[in-house]
Design a protein around this nucleic acid. Structure first.
Length: 625
RNA sequence: GGAGCGGUAGUUAAGACGGUUAUAACGCCGGCCUGUCACGCCGGAGGCCGAGGGUUCGAGUCCCUUCCGCUCCGCCA
């Protein structure tokens, strides 16, 4: 802040008082004409100050809303005189009387707009430095500033609404699962690192030098052990950790609604999960969800949408035309393992510039280019139409039900690339053309996932879901003979094109679990050393069981209409997994490392700072001179 | 590991072809104002143009390096 600002605020601090027994009578969002004439006491922050010299208006804010407080020299001269010092975000307590606003002065945009509180006396509970950004929803401060001053960011009504929405969701979840006989059990945060899956966060052990705990990627094995223990139905709202790169919908620590049930098949698990969503939507969103949710096999999802989490709020489905162009003179099509087309009705009006942008878009997914055909009344306008025979053109027209005004996009090549490119282009186009209905929540189950996918880097099969997922009935032999064809008893819940939950029926036979590890390339000894406790447990009367986990952050993000899960997490991390508020991670003292039996191979980039002094945050003083 | 966008006053942005004193709005400080509500009017302060190096008579602008934020690919059983 400027010298002047600092002096002013410093001067004002002399007027700070204690609560002195004052108690709030109401919050700042509830007073209406019903309280007309009442003596009230409000406490909160100064949102806006409108000082007319004669009259002073202050909008007082707490988490419930805004109330206009009037300081008038005619009614309380002392209170009015002192109120000139008020500034943004000063904290006050106000005692006064509720009165209707004068004729024509009602503010219809405010819940409390019919009344105002005339201050009789007030206390300054605290001053505030000028905030680095305005505490209001329309404020568009950069994300780095918002994260560095997160507690101020969280003062904004929208962020408070997000956190309270999240609270309502978890409360609703707890009620529903409790009523369903699910027992909330806490599982360890310091646990064992396991191969497979994401990179672990590791925690060194002081008592066992050279050894490490891992933070759980999920409580998967513990919840299975709870089933073996006979808990029957378990749930947990639980923090999980994965040391992978971040995205708008991925944080290194995130929260799952984790549940598991014994003596249940996939239909029962899915039914419980649907009921849970219906309950949340009823209680939190005031909406009724039609049950059951539609189901779609993984094969069908990939075929029609190119992705395993299709957004079915709009059309633009993909059509496989590989067979139609198998013998085409157009070598790109004829030699490709997969050729798919996507029709955009009315897309003929897309400009060359737009198509070029889409071409750049699909290159992200490894596409070389993007073939297209505009269907004109008399002809096909396209760089590739001349390569297609009459029969091929007829075949394509029929397969896609083409009419004049359409545009068709093509992708040919390896199936993974073709599906990824067109599947993602499909969503991109829908956003570009505004085809996605607003305020619609489209749930869908994707089922019958492959049990394995081939990992090119490791040259082996890895579990598509996780290594504890049961194979589909009759697919036990395929685990050895042809892993690529084995299907899993796994299911994902998809909401508006986002995976919000996923689960499976688990392997509850030690023998099958051993066979799974074998298929993943583990020697029996490796399986024993890594997962011996699980194998043992499965041989001690493990009941059939299965479950599922919801990504709470992602779910709340969708309910809140937020574009990043950071907006529904109180203290999120940046894309580099740092916390701009606390400046974690940070170097530690040499002594701490010694105690843990650790030595750094390289000098730390920065030394640990002594004490807990001021942070070197950009603009430690909000209004820096 | 890779691709793209961004970093200029407290904030959000303009300035980009290299050329006077780097703009604007909001915010901040001071003054005036008794019905405002994102109050209004008048005046003022506020900048190492993310950092470092280079080219040049001259760099916010061109080149190189680097740091930070965001989006995405890979990765995320």
């Amino acid at each position: 802040m400027t010298e002047q600002t600092q002096d002013v605020q410093q001067e004002h601090r002399k007027f700070i008082e204690d609560l002195g027994g004052w108690q709030r009578s109401h919050n700042c969002g509830e007073l209406t004409l019903a309280e007309n004439g009442a003596e009230v006491c409000l406490m909160g922050w100064v949102q806006y100050r409108r000082d007319h010299g004669g009259l002073i208006f202050v909008d007082l804010r707490d988490r419930e809303g805004l109330t206009q407080v009037v300081f008038s020299p005619d009614i309380a001269p002392a209170a009015h005189e002192n109120a000139h010092i008020l500034r943004s975000e000063y904290v006050l307590a106000v005692r006064g009387k509720v009165r209707p606003r004068p004729e024509g002065m009602v503010n219809a945009n405010m819940v409390t707009g019919a009344i105002e509180v005339v201050a009789h006396e007030w206390k300054l509970l605290n001053t505030s430095k000028t905030p680095p950004f305005a505490i209001e929803d329309r404020c568009e401060a950069g994300e780095n500033l918002r994260l560095a001053w997160r507690y101020l960011d969280l003062r904004r009504p929208r962020m408070q609404a997000n956190l309270r929405l999240r609270h309502k969701v978890t409360q609703s979840v707890r009620r529903y699962l409790d009523e369903g006989g699910f027992v909330e059990v806490e599982t360890p945060v310091l646990t064992k690192s396991t191969p497979e899956g994401a990179r672990d966060f590791l925690v060194p052990s002081r008592l066992n030098p050279g050894e490490f705990y891992a933070l759980p990627q999920s409580p998967q094995l513990f919840k299975q052990l709870l089933m073996v223990a006979g808990l029957d139905r378990y749930f947990q709202v639980v923090r999980c950790f994965r040391d992978e790169d971040l995205r708008a919908d991925r944080q290194p620590e995130f929260t799952q609604i984790d549940l598991e049930m014994s003596f249940a098949d996939e239909n029962q698990v899915m039914s419980i999960a649907e009921g849970l969503m219906a309950r949340v939507f009823r209680e939190v969103m005031d909406r009724d969800l039609p049950l059951p949710f539609p189901r779609m096999s993984w094969d069908e999802a990939m075929r029609r949408y190119g992705v395993d989490k299709p957004d079915t709020r709009f059309g633009l489905e993909l059509v496989d035309i590989t067979d139609i162009v198998r013998n085409s003179g157009f070598k790109l099509f004829a030699t490709a393992r997969l050729v798919k087309a996507m029709k955009v009705p009315g897309g003929e009006s897309l400009t060359r510039k737009e198509i070029d942008a889409f071409t750049e878009f699909v290159k992200i997914y490894g596409a070389q280019g993007l073939a297209w055909i505009k269907i004109k009344p008399a002809e096909w306008q396209s760089p590739i139409a001349k390569f297609l025979s009459e029969a091929e053109r007829n075949g394509i027209a029929q397969a896609l039900d083409l009419t004049a005004g359409d545009i068709v996009f093509f992708q040919a090549g390896e199936p993974e690339m073709v599906n990824a490119a067109l599947g993602n282009l499909r969503v991109h186009l829908a956003e570009h053309l505004d085809l996605i209905p607003k305020n619609s929540f489209n749930f869908l189950w994707v089922t019958d996932f492959p049990l394995y996918e081939y990992d090119q880097e490791e040259k082996r099969y890895v579990a598509c879901h996780h290594p504890f997922t049961a194979p589909a009935p009759g697919h036990l032999e395929l685990m050895r003979s042809d892993p690529s064809r084995a299907k899993a008893r796994a299911y994902d819940m998809v909401l508006n094109g986002s995976e919000v939950g996923g689960g499976s029926i688990r392997i509850h036979s030690g023998e099958t679990q051993r066979r799974m590890f074998e298929a993943l390339g583990f020697t029996p000894e490796q399986a024993e050393s890594q997962f011996g406790f699980l194998l043992q447990a499965l041989e001690q009367g493990a009941p059939p069981h299965g479950g599922l986990a919801f990504g709470l952050d992602r779910l709340v993000m969708l309910l809140a209409g937020a574009s990043s899960i950071r907006d529904v997490i109180a203290f999120p991390k940046t894309q580099k997994a740092t916390c701009l508020l606390t400046e974690a991670p940070a170097p530690v003292a040499a002594r701490q490392l010694r105690e843990l039996g650790l030595r750094l191979r390289e000098q730390p980039a920065r030394e640990p700072e002594a004490g807990s002094g001021a942070k070197a945050r950009p603009g430690s003083d909000p209004v820096q001179a």
